[in-house]
Design a protein around this nucleic acid. Structure first.
Lengths: 107, 107
DNA sequence: CAATATGTAGAACCTGGTTCTATATTTCAA
DNA sequence: TTGAAATATAGAACCAGGTTCTACATATTG
């Protein structure tokens, strides 16, 4: 292992690193390592308008500040929360991270 | 402070939490807190095709696995690396996080 | 009061992200 | 060695996400 971590939330990261090191050492095959990657990825949620709003309010920030964290415009956040538009792939990933680890995880 | 962290990379998160707590305590105004948020956000890079490829290869994963982490299709990653398309706002945010903290930060 | 922050609303535009197929090369297990 | 699977390129077509703009309404604050 290249690094060790104290937090249990980083178990998945550790699994990935372990698999990578095992691969480098020639102990496991590439396709096996990919299975590790698949299994240790956090599942992506599909957020409703209300869930997005609740998430933002949980973090106690305005739409503008929330948008800054996600690197989108404030209008986009507003549209998400009104159900006008729905966040795409990368946006959902960021929202999932925030939902699980809080805004500070993507500061 | 609600939590304390040991790593210096979380200084910005700490600033945010501190500002938030100061606001709750009525010691600073909302607009002042927003300035804190602005200043503690990691600047977003604009990635060239080559930089994206270099970033992925640094993490030693295939386009497919890289795509899984970012919650986009493998085709999108391929298009980025060939300069066919360019990552949008949320995608750039994710790439910036990976560039700074590694793939495990968005596992 | 005046200025700022916050959020809604809607329209128009552009391009990112998806999906599909086809091709070529490499990797690895049987 | 053979064949399946992984990897990556290429291009086309489509949809909708994200942006930008304006206008309006309501707090909030100095």
């Amino acid at each position: 292992m290249a690094r060790t971590r104290a937090y249990k939330s980083d178990v998945k990261a550790a699994i990935h690193e372990t698999a990578q090191d095992l691969h480098k050492a020639g102990l496991i095959e590439k396709h096996t390592m990919r299975r590790f990657d698949e299994s240790c990825l956090t599942p992506i949620k599909t957020f409703t308008a209300d869930e997005i709003r609740a998430l933002r309010e949980r973090e106690q920030v305005s739409q503008t500040v929330f948008a800054m964290y996600l690197n989108v415009t404030k209008d986009s956040v507003s549209q998400w929360e009104r159900g006008d538009k729905r966040p795409a792939g990368p946006a959902c990933k960021l929202l999932s991270i925030v939902a699980e680890k809080g805004l500070s995880a993507i500061a």
